[in-house]
Design a protein around this nucleic acid. Structure first.
Lengths: 107, 107
DNA sequence: CACTTACGTAAGTGTCAACTAACTTATTTC
DNA sequence: GAAATAAGTTAGTTGACACTTACGTAAGTG
């Protein structure tokens, strides 16, 4: 999960992900849509996304077709939503117990 | 926004954020809840979170009290949700998305 | 005022990440 | 089978980052 979040923290990779969200694309086309970076860099980004399971690869002759792994994306999304929503209650106790243990001044 | 995402990609900082989500805490207590890292490291993490506006600082005598900036967190959350949803929208526009569902691994 | 507490900041270190350039491997075409 | 195309891979560079130790500083305390 951490791998996925880190992968998403990079703007270039988010851009790639958007490209292959709805359509399957070969690496060459993905790389071609970035003019300020080499094909190699994109290939490496694709590797990171693949390792994070955010993207799936399928070989088609000389091409490697990529598309977003929406199942995994959903997992990330759920994780974050639980993070926002659950943190409040779940951690109030932790904070308060720490409060007591260390004996913080005033309040 | 990119600053915020990057800040969130670091597990330690997510942990800190959780701590100050529901309760305002002084830096010392926050640091005290991590035993494998120095106070200085936590201070620096707090600086990153502050720069990303994910956390607000309030001075109270010798203490610097921190709490999560929920407004900013909401912004990040919205950004991500638009990210998912915009892309999903595009997906809907792709006519063959329905039959492509069948080829999707796991889930 | 000396002392302590609660913090930030500076400087230095090791590691990792993004990138380029060059090379390799697989596939199709002639 | 040689050449061309598509893509991954490796080596090396640069910069960022998480961290530590050491020091600085503001606020309270005897």
């Amino acid at each position: 999960m951490d791998t996925a979040l880190k992968a998403l923290a990079e703007p270039r990779r988010r851009e790639i992900l958007k490209l292959v969200w709805a359509t399957e694309l070969p690496a060459s086309l993905i790389a071609a849509s970035f003019d300020d970076v080499t094909r190699s860099a994109i290939s490496q980004h694709l590797g990171v996304l693949r390792d994070a399971a955010l993207v799936v690869e399928r070989r088609d002759g000389v091409h490697r077709m990529y598309r977003a792994n929406r199942a995994e994306m959903k997992r990330v999304r759920r994780f974050l939503e639980e993070y926002w929503d659950d943190s409040l209650e779940r951690l109030r106790d932790v904070a308060e117990s720490a409060h007591r243990e260390k004996g913080i001044p005033n309040e």
